[in-house]
Design a protein around this nucleic acid. Structure first.
Lengths: 270, 270
DNA sequence: TTTTTCAATACGGTTTTCCGTAAAAATTAC
DNA sequence: GTAATTTTTACGGAAAACCGTATTGAAAAA
């Protein structure tokens, strides 16, 4: 009973939603693109040891091309690409069977829907599944997603070795990450560390998220009460659900339920 | 009076939200990445006329690299890159002054926030501003955004020459688009045409969007009524606002206001 | 065991939303 | 011009959400 308290917590950066701007100011000068393109020529001379066999799981062909090029410039010979999660999983399996295992996976989180019916629907699932079968596999997440919720969930899970945001310095950061991870270090760019270190953070448990989801799915509070009661979820009284919503609104600074749902959507809680 | 009816309409694909999947099934085989990378070698022999001076406005360095490479492979000599909207605008101005105008702009829609304070906040604004000063400028939009609302707003505006989604075939489509646009044609990939041609489409006027926005900002219906009355927005009676919300819920298949807001967020109406 | 504490529940009154009906105003058709 | 249709507004009862208070119950502390 009362087990909801021990469940996964979500980190929510409240300041981010109110301002709509990142808080941690970066002082690094933006690298212009030419420099990024030049990575190749500069590092070909680099004869250090490096990953042998790398798999890129990324649906956007453009990003796939850029990452492949970066890996090549780092002297990595065997580079496999896939645009689907299921295929990524199978490739890892096959590489293992062929006695030529994948050393490093660089993987996106969100994959666009397609005509294909995928069993593994996103990068996160792929990571959980792979880590179960290959606990030693190094994984670098490479995603546009920069919400603290997502980053901390993955980073704190200890299942990944680096989290790189696709942004203006993405390739630069990715390069650094690959080198660090090869040397058995974990890597998180400074800007992301700042994002996670922020104060204005509220913890939200599964139970609350559940209520928000149901509310956004059109359930009334009364219906949530009935549903919870029926399925044995606890607490399930109308008063308790009312109270949770009231607390959530207070935490988020929302005045009405519609606003609460709107904010929860912005924060990617639901 | 009643001028809200003549305002911009938003196209909403209702089926997309209920299923969470694209409707138009694509039968094209997915091109594997190697092929995409090989564009370069295959097309270097192509000596046809091509754009002379192209500007890429794209915040992600990875995509920037890939697009630059594609342009190079098409024999385009002068390629400028920028990761900021303001800079893109200035570059166009400067190129004009230097008597070496930009022939083609390939531009993203969403740009991540930065420490820089930008006047032009997104690609769409950039396009409006540029088209005012350079009506003849060719523009290809290159974005991950694939919601019918966004696509049709830009496509129907007649301000752009092509809309390409960053997806599994993005580079392939972009290449085709460049060639077509050079020949004074407009170009929309088949998959996107299908997206726009769908039936389950509801038109939503500014007025409705306004109500949804206010609701998601925490206004009660009563408060919306007062606000509209004060500012002279018409209709503004409680009953009318109630009715609009009722109709919206019916159109969207939502049961409650929170669900309505949730769906509107998913559909990127607000 | 008893006490303390805190979360869950119950309840009642108020506000907000919901929904039907109907009158008034505006638009369109004739 | 009038008639027909649609839209806006008004009103009132019902349902849902809101909010404070009080009670119950379970775990933790004494």
């Amino acid at each position: 009973m009362l087990d909801f308290q021990q469940k996964l917590k979500f980190l929510v950066n409240l300041r981010q939603i109110s301002l709509g701007k990142p808080v941690g100011i970066q002082f690094k000068r933006t690298k212009i693109l030419r420099q990024a393109s030049n990575i190749e020529s500069r590092s070909l001379s680099n004869n250090k040891l490096m990953f042998k066999h790398v798999l890129i799981a990324e649906d956007l062909d453009s990003v796939n091309i850029a990452v492949t090029q970066l890996l090549g410039s780092l002297g990595i010979k065997e580079i496999e690409n896939t645009q689907y999660c299921d295929q990524a999983f199978l490739r890892c399996k096959k590489a293992e069977l062929d006695n030529n295992p994948i050393d490093l996976l660089i993987c996106d989180l969100s994959f666009k829907q397609d005509f294909r019916q995928e069993k593994i629907e996103n990068g996160e699932e792929l990571i959980w599944k792979l880590k179960k079968d290959f606990p030693a596999l190094k994984i670098i997440v490479h995603s546009v997603e920069d919400h603290p919720t997502t980053i901390s969930r993955l980073w704190d899970s200890e299942k990944i070795d680096a989290y790189i945001c696709k942004d203006r310095n993405g390739m630069q950061n990715l390069k650094e990450a690959i080198v660090k991870v090869y040397n058995d270090e974990k890597f998180l760019p400074k800007s992301l560390k700042d994002t996670l270190k922020q104060d204005n953070i509220v913890q939200i448990a599964d139970y609350e998220v559940r209520i928000l989801k149901l509310l956004s799915d059109g359930y009334t509070q009364e219906e949530i009460h009935v549903k919870f009661k029926k399925e044995g979820t606890y607490p399930h009284s109308k008063s308790s659900i009312e109270k949770r919503l009231k607390d959530l609104k207070e935490d988020f600074g929302a005045r009405t339920n519609p606003q609460l749902i709107s904010m929860a959507k912005d924060l990617k809680i639901i």
